[in-house]
Design a protein around this nucleic acid. Structure first.
Length: 469
RNA sequence: GCCCCCAUCGUCUAGUGGCCUAGGACACCACCCUUUCAAGGUGGCGGCACGGGUUCGAAUCCCGUUGGGGGUGCCA
């Protein structure tokens, strides 16, 4: 086991893996790798009933997709916070024994009433000196000391909190179960965590946790609070309104490398003029001290642009390989039996520069694998509105029938001849042919498409289009 | 309300007192290339929130204002 720093990543199990969590995980992971430390995964929930096995597995799978594999020697865990409940209670009771915590029998409603009456928000320390014994319904509260708590944060510097503004917070609930704040600190201590890198939303909790560390007689870990990810309204990304599940991006064919690279450029940038950099470069250069202080907009457009770059950078064989899951998936518009991998391979290189996500691929080649392509009516109308369109189709069909060299180059020559005889441009005359054969006005280069489609299908589709006119 | 954080092109960022006439990327626009669409190439548009200091000199340091965000649970 490594003696280096121990970074903990502590997501709560929610049934999906948040992109914000993914970025935090990546920060921890990059640091772990460079510092020769350990990445400690702890599933964060004091309530065991919420630790659904499939959710935990989902987090582990998502992490693995991002390159944070649990079989890696620097990966440790997962641990489950709920399994340490006894230690949490024990720590709380030791605080009680030392007078650093006390019991209180006020109900939440009573606390609120008192706050309202006094005009000051929060718990007012009512039971501080009442000497209450433990008992059912009584919560254990931490006795916040006077003075000031200074949080030293790697990204934000020193953040000062006046302890007078921090209420005596609850450690143990009325039913005796530990609160997350406490559980967190105790677990971090047990796991010998040295660095806590998490989202900024936890910053206001940090002085409380730091006081707890001190009360428990230990030095707090190094803190680092990274800015949150926001939507176009500049609000924290939320499951309800925003697309935040990394699983969803994975399914749509965002490449893991692109996602990782993009996520790392939110709040931080590699040196030089290009943001597309290999992971190793990120590991070498990433520093928490360089992370931006302000929230970053999760821009799907830019993610897609990154993804397009990563797709184009792949070798064709690799691209073909990556497309397998999508092409064999349930979303494809053709019958699985009609799919012909050879045809796809023949088109792959042309498809590669035309997609931003793998999910775009099927629509690019569907005309090859269906009996009759679905016709885009707007495209049909536009492509066939000129009087010469029908004649071009007729001539093309006839030429195809007698053609003895079914190659893209020759097919191009054929249509060029038809085009020239009418003093038109190929850009014009290819349109009706394209729509007749593929159903669309845009797509991969036409003649290569015809070559791969084959003579019979091409002719029959041209004939069908002529008939329709 | 109270506490905390933040503020460079539309967006993500570079910038740590003179190299800034503020650099790059995404998006957008134009042109080139071109069988459509992409890709690629070239160029363009566009920013230091505001007001005071400090300094010979400020995007950079200080104060204030404004504007955003987060936290204020017997949730995590």
């Amino acid at each position: 086991m490594s003696n280096g720093p121990r970074y903990r990543f502590a997501p709560s199990p929610t049934g999906f893996f948040h992109v914000g969590g993914a970025r935090t995980a990546l920060y921890n992971w990059a640091l772990t790798l460079r510092e020769g430390g350990t990445f400690v995964l702890r599933i964060e929930d004091t309530d065991e009933s919420r630790n659904q096995p499939q959710w935990t597995q989902g987090i582990i799978d998502a992490l693995a997709w991002l390159g944070i594999d649990k079989s890696h020697p620097q990966f440790e865990g997962p641990y489950f916070q709920s399994e340490n409940a006894a230690a949490h209670v024990e720590a709380a009771m030791s605080l009680y024994a030392e007078g650093r915590a006390y019991f209180c029998d006020l109900t939440p409603d009573q606390v609120q009433e008192r706050a309202k009456a006094s005009g000051k928000p929060g718990y007012d320390g009512f039971s501080r000196d009442r000497g209450l014994e433990p008992g059912p319904g009584r919560v254990l509260r931490f006795r916040v000391p006077e003075g000031e708590t200074i949080v030293r944060d790697l990204v934000r510097g020193e953040v000062r909190f006046d302890n007078a503004t921090i209420e005596d917070f609850v450690l143990l609930r009325g039913n005796g179960s530990p609160m997350f704040l406490l559980a967190n600190v105790v677990d971090d201590r047990i796991m010998r965590i040295t660095h806590v890198v998490r989202a900024e939303e936890h910053l206001p909790n940090t002085p409380k946790q730091q006081m707890l560390w001190e009360a428990l007689g230990a030095a707090a870990p190094t803190w680092a609070h990274v800015p949150v990810l926001v939507n176009e309204q500049r609000k924290k990304l939320s499951k309800r309104r925003d697309k935040v599940a990394v699983e969803q991006y994975r399914e749509e064919g965002i490449l893991a490398d692109a996602m990782v690279n993009y996520l790392m450029t939110l709040g931080w940038a590699p040196s030089g003029d290009t943001e597309i950099v290999p992971w190793q470069r990120i590991v070498d250069e990433f520093r928490l001290e360089d992370v931006n202080h302000s929230p970053a907009f999760f821009d799907i457009q830019k993610l897609l642009a990154f993804n397009g770059e990563y797709i184009r950078a792949m070798a064709v064989e690799e691209f073909v390989q990556c497309c397998q899951p999508i092409l064999a998936g349930p979303q494809v518009p053709w019958h699985p039996q009609q799919f012909d991998k050879e045809k796809f391979v023949a088109m792959a290189e042309l498809v590669q520069t035309r997609v931003q996500v793998l999910a775009d691929v099927p629509a690019m080649i569907d005309f090859l694998f269906v009996d009759t392509p679905v016709v885009d009516e707007a495209a049909w109308t536009k492509a066939t509105k000129d009087s010469w369109a029908r004649d071009v189709l007729v001539e093309m069909a006839e030429a195809c029938e007698v053609c003895n060299d079914w190659s893209a180059a020759n097919l191009k020559t054929i249509l060029e001849r038809i085009t020239e005889s009418r003093q038109l441009k190929l850009g014009k005359t290819q349109a009706p042919v394209r729509v007749a054969v593929t159903g669309r006005s845009v797509g991969p280069p036409l003649f290569e498409s015809l070559e791969v489609l084959g003579r019979e299908s091409t002719i029959s589709r041209l004939r069908a289009a002529i008939a329709r006119l």
